[in-house]
Write a protein that binds this DNA or RNA. Structure first.
Lengths: 229, 229
DNA sequence: CTGATGCTTCGATAAAGGTCGAACTATGCG
DNA sequence: CGCATAGTTCGACCTTTATCGAAGCATCAG
């Protein structure tokens, strides 16, 4: 019974409260320094340093040195997806660390998941893309149809660049608050970037919240045929 | 940043080697007893009992008592998916099987359990009913949906008669060869009766074996959308 | 009833690992 | 160069928790 991958090792890494805090922070997609992570996680710098080094060894984080700073970020999108999955299950158990507050509602509505959009609006966007057959599910793979490609190009997303990258173009990501899929992959990322370029959305500093401007919300809903609630 | 679900709690649950072993075992989809899980995980029964109780509290497992045995299975598909994700990240693949139950192939395939159908075909029938939302799980109770009721009536099962009976309509029964659920209760019984009426099946005298006719097997598979192996 | 089996609870033990103070290295700034 | 800042390493606590023996329930078979 010693076969199979070592899920205990990875889970133990995530299982420590301080490390879990840091990982949750890094879900914003940003790279943060040791000190920043230490403060947010509520531990001293020494402790944080030790934790981060373990997370790196475990392949969950990717460090980058810049001058005398050391930045840590999630190693890749798989890590982000896994964390999102754990959040989903934890939320399903009804095990929230904090009571639902105003911030929580905003998080559920629209937030960043690593580098793409998540939350209620993101799942609706995903549903729209599926309904219009811009995306289709082929087995477990998500495929961008010709119509979908045209739609993306129309939105000034340079698909050729995305295709040349190694990362998968389209990917499903399970939304922990909505318990439905939203769009990940380089296309999901490209969409978020365009939203920011167009000033439809703004990131709220220090959080994962994504805030839509009034006109941005309208344009977004129009683009994806989402009715006002 | 202390928002969001408590991922540390769930991860800690998975993070213990003994628990991880058990969860990996249960990825087979089968329900296993405390003793079996203890042995496979390499710990004593007391320790296993404690672990399993924690996993239950954490919402990862669903226990069922049958006689003096206690069977544990993964709580739902989300848990399985999460574990699959962790395995993916932990790199490597491994699946593990364990032969259980009667050795007779015919018995394993289809047999009578008290008054309803059991065996591989029965668990597939059950899975089909669940997948099509003819049955839904509400807490520990199995509920026949409107769609399910229509489906049953369409199959000439007189639901009114069943409802008037004192016995519960739907009930999960743990299949001892498959270690998964199949349908019991008066509805489960009614289905078997109909199968016999239609000559889809015949009971083999002196045994619990249920033998499907060639055409009966085909009709059965069509009714429940079960692919030929 | 009695004995056997499956599982749970309790308590003591021991190992693991998170934590922080202190000392140390490395980089940047004047 | 000296000094400040960022991060690491070391060592010593100390909380947490996995573990198993022993005893206690619960269920089943005669």
């Amino acid at each position: 019974m010693r076969e199979g991958p070592d899920i205990a090792y990875v889970s133990t890494l995530i299982g420590d409260p301080a490390r879990a805090n840091m990982l949750t922070l890094l879900m914003s997609g940003k790279a943060l320094t040791v000190s920043e992570l230490a403060e947010e996680a509520g531990v001293t710098i020494q402790t944080a340093s030790s934790h981060l080094s373990k997370l790196h060894t475990g392949g969950l984080l990717r460090p980058r040195k810049q001058g005398r700073h050391k930045y840590y970020a999630l190693a890749n999108e798989d890590v982000a997806r896994l964390l999102e999955g754990v959040m989903g299950l934890a939320a399903g158990v009804g095990h929230l660390r904090r009571r639902t507050g105003p911030k929580d509602a905003q998080l559920r509505h629209a937030r960043v998941c690593y580098n793409h959009l998540a939350g209620a609006l993101a799942t609706q966007m995903f549903d729209s893309l599926m309904a219009k057959r811009h995306l289709v599910l082929k087995g477990d793979d998500l495929i961008l149809t010709d119509a979908g490609a045209a739609f993306a190009r129309d939105f000034d997303i340079e698909l050729d660049v995305l295709h040349s990258a190694r990362a998968p173009l389209c990917r499903e990501c399970l939304d922990w608050s909505e318990r439905r899929s939203h769009l990940a992959g380089s296309l999901g990322r490209a969409f978020l970037i365009r939203f920011e370029e167009l000033s439809w959305v703004k990131r709220v500093e220090q959080t994962r919240i994504v805030s839509f401007s009034r006109s941005g919300d309208e344009a977004f809903r129009k683009l994806f045929s989402i009715e006002r609630p």
